[in-house]
Amino acid sequence: MARVDVKKTYKLYIGGKFPRSESGRSYEVYAAKKGTFLANAAQGSRKDARDAVTAARAAQPGWASATAYNRGQVLYRVAEVMESRRPQLVQEVRDAEGLSPAAAESVVSQAIDRWVWYAGWSDKYVQILGGLNPVAGPYFNISASEPTGVVAVLAPQESSLLGLVSVIAPAIVSGNTVVVVTSADRPLPAITLSECLATSDVPGGVVNIITGKAAEIAPWLSSHRDVNAIDLAGAAGAEGVDWAKLEEASADNLKRVLRPAGTGSDAVEPDWTQTPDLSRLTAFLETKTVWHPKGR
């Protein structure tokens, strides 16, 4: 006799816990090519986003004050946990993006490698971006990078794992905390990533993952006065999202805005397989400059 499938109903990842959506809603997730039913995902609401921002704000000072070395170790640990869940991730990426087994393997490898790549930057970017500034006076003048704070991230709609990792890792490596709205149609790899984060050493609240529709949640995050920056990568291809409106709402509290790739009003999803540069990391940094009198 055929066994009845166990189809999961997933929840959100907020403050290190896995709560249901405050709205009580969920939606069905289907495989990209075959159209088969995969699972139910929680449909996050604006109140879930608010709760996530509260959790991210609470976690931010502690995460930022961890040593760079420690943050690097924690990010590396995420890569390790992902490695041990590789078969599940490969299957989910295959289903979500309709890839061949070999292509899915490659994407997961790249996603894991990207954590390691950013982990390595944790104790190096400050030296590269900061330094001793030449000034015409008897002073030292030193610039150092500091995290911006709480960053809202619209995760890419197409690249469900590699794109997701490519937007989360550069934001948190410097001590920011993030509230991520996942791809609406392809949320399952993000849910598994949240399970990886929960079982690695990432403190609760540093990464908060909300599955659901960007069109519903993004306006509240962009106008939220306790969010310091917003990454609009996921505006590309998101139904009903006008990223210019989001940038406009972000101006209210002078949020830093990382625009989606593309020219003009077109938002396109970049090729995440390219080796990144530091631009996503530097987008969410502030520069603190200190003047200090110099003796003889």
Partner: peptide, 9 residues
């Protein structure tokens, strides 16, 4: 205001 506020305000 119609927007979520924060401790800075």
């Amino acid at each position: 205001t119609g927007a979520y506020s924060g401790a800075n305000y």
